[in-house]
Computed example of a mutant assay.
Amino acid sequence: MPLVANARMYSATATARADWKTLLAWVLERAGLDWLVIDYDAPAPLSALWAREDLGLAMMCGLPFSQREPRPTLIAAPVPSPARYGGRPAYFTDIVVRADARYERLEDTFGGVVGYTLADSMSGGVALRDHLAPYRAAHGSRLFRHAVGHLIHARGVIEALAAGTIDVGPLDSYYHDLLRRHEPDFARQVRTIASTVARPIPPLVATAALSADELARLRDALQASTRAPALHDVTERLLLAGFDVPDPADYDVLARIALRDDLPTFEEL
Rank of each mutant, 00 (worst) to 15 (best):
W50N: 07
R155D: 08
F110G: 02
A16N: 01
L240V: 07
T226M: 03
A209W: 12
T265V: 01
S195R: 10
R142N: 12
D177V: 10
S195F: 00
D262W: 07
D34W: 11
L178R: 11
F65M: 08
W20M: 02
G111L: 12
T109W: 02
S141R: 14
G56P: 07
A198T: 10
S211M: 06
M122Y: 14
L161F: 03
A25C: 06
S211F: 13
M1G: 13
A83H: 02
P200H: 12
P248M: 10
D244K: 10
T117R: 11
L106M: 00
D167S: 05
L3M: 11
H153K: 11
A7D: 05
A14F: 08
L171M: 14
A206I: 04
R98V: 00
R129Y: 04
L49R: 13
A14S: 15
V114R: 08
G62E: 08
W50R: 03
F144W: 12
S11L: 07
E53N: 14
A48Y: 09
G32F: 15
L74N: 07
M1Q: 14
L28N: 03
P82F: 09
S225Y: 09
V27M: 03
Y174A: 11
D185M: 11
M60C: 12
L210K: 10
P43R: 04
F144K: 11
G56R: 06
T192R: 12
L3W: 05
V157W: 02
V168S: 00
A224K: 12
L143T: 04
R129L: 09
V27Y: 03
A255V: 11
F65H: 03
A31G: 14
T265R: 14
Y40K: 02
D54Q: 12
A255I: 10
A51L: 11
A138E: 15
D167F: 07
A138S: 15
P248K: 03
S141W: 06
A258K: 05
A5H: 07
A187C: 00
